[in-house]
Computed example of a mutant assay.
Amino acid sequence: MIVHFYTRPGCHLCEEARLMLKLVQEDIAFEIKEVNIEENEALHEKYMLMIPVVEFEDEIIQYGQVDYATLLEAFLK
């Protein structure tokens, strides 16, 4: 199971979301593929106002404020 995590350096919400993903990872096994949107023009344009963005199975699970319960529910489906 791979979860895409769109972020950029210096983003404090991204740091919080990363910690939340790691907490969920303690309960469910998955791989986090972290993507820096500043390294890709199309991704930067798409997500620059939304980051952090958590995407699973080509669906955005959460963005901005990321919480444990929402992530856990999405990954258990």
Rank of each mutant, 00 (worst) to 15 (best):
Asn40Gly: 09
Pro9Lys: 11
Tyr47Gly: 04
Leu76Trp: 11
Ala17Tyr: 01
Val66Lys: 00
Met50Lys: 12
Leu71Pro: 06
Met48Ser: 09
Met50His: 11
Glu31Gly: 02
Tyr6Lys: 01
Lys77Thr: 12
Gly10Thr: 08
Leu23Tyr: 08
Ala29Asp: 15
Ile51Thr: 02
Glu15Tyr: 13
Val66Cys: 01
Glu57Pro: 09
Asp27His: 13
Val35Trp: 08
Ile32Gly: 09
Asp27Cys: 11
Tyr68Gln: 10
Leu72Cys: 04
Met20Val: 14
Asn40Cys: 09
Phe5Cys: 03
Val53Met: 03
Cys14Phe: 03
Tyr68Trp: 10
Ile37Gln: 05
Leu43Asn: 14
Arg18Ala: 03
His44Trp: 11
Tyr68Asn: 07
Asn40Phe: 10
Phe56Ala: 15
Arg8Ile: 10
Ala42Ser: 14
Gln62Arg: 07
Ile37Ala: 08
Lys22Tyr: 04
Ile60Trp: 09
Phe75Asp: 05
Ala29Glu: 13
Val3Phe: 00
Asn36Phe: 09
Val24Met: 00
Met48Glu: 06
Val54Arg: 00
Val35Gln: 12
Ala69Lys: 06
Ala42Pro: 05
Cys14Ile: 06
Glu57Lys: 10
Glu15Ile: 11
Gly10Val: 02
Ile60Glu: 05
Gln62Ile: 05
Ile60Cys: 01
Ala74Trp: 00
Phe56Val: 14
Val53Tyr: 14
Tyr47Asp: 01
Met48Lys: 13
Gly64Glu: 06
Ile51Trp: 01
Phe75Trp: 11
Leu43Ile: 09
Ala17Leu: 00
Asp27Val: 14
Ala17Cys: 00
Thr70Lys: 05
His4Ser: 10
Leu43Cys: 14
Tyr68Glu: 09
Asp67Lys: 04
Val53Arg: 07
Glu45Trp: 08
Glu38Leu: 12
Gly10Gln: 08
Leu49Ser: 05
Pro52Thr: 03
Tyr6Trp: 14
Cys11Tyr: 06
Gln62Cys: 09
Asp67His: 02
Ala17His: 07
Ile37Ser: 02
Met20Trp: 02
Thr70Val: 02
Gln25His: 05
Ala29Met: 14
Lys77Gln: 11
Ile61Ala: 02
Asn40Asp: 15
Ala29Cys: 13
Leu76Cys: 12
Glu73Asn: 15
Val53Trp: 13
Gly10Cys: 08
Leu72Glu: 04
His44Ser: 13
Ile51Asn: 00
His44Val: 06
Asp67Trp: 01
Glu38Pro: 04
Val66Asn: 00
Leu23Pro: 04
Ala74Glu: 08
Lys33Cys: 03
Val66Trp: 00
Ile28Asn: 15
Glu31Lys: 11
Ile32Asp: 02
Glu59Arg: 04
Tyr6Thr: 00
Ile32Arg: 01
Arg8Gln: 05
Phe5Leu: 03
His12Ile: 10
Val3Asn: 00
Leu19Ser: 15
Cys14Ala: 10
Val35Cys: 08
Glu73Gln: 11
Val53Ile: 08
Met50Gln: 15
Val3Leu: 06
Ile2Thr: 13
Leu19Pro: 05
Thr7Ala: 06
Met50Leu: 14
Glu57Val: 06
Glu41Arg: 12
Lys46Trp: 12
Ile37Glu: 07
Ile60Val: 07
Leu72Lys: 08
Leu71Arg: 03
Asp27Glu: 15
Met20Asn: 07
Cys11Trp: 03
Val66Thr: 05
Arg18Val: 01
Phe75His: 09
His12Lys: 12
Met1Trp: 13
Asn36Trp: 07
Glu41Phe: 08
Thr7Pro: 02
Leu72Phe: 05
Pro52Ile: 11
Gln65Tyr: 14
Asp27Ser: 15
Met1Thr: 09
Leu76Thr: 15
Phe5Asn: 00
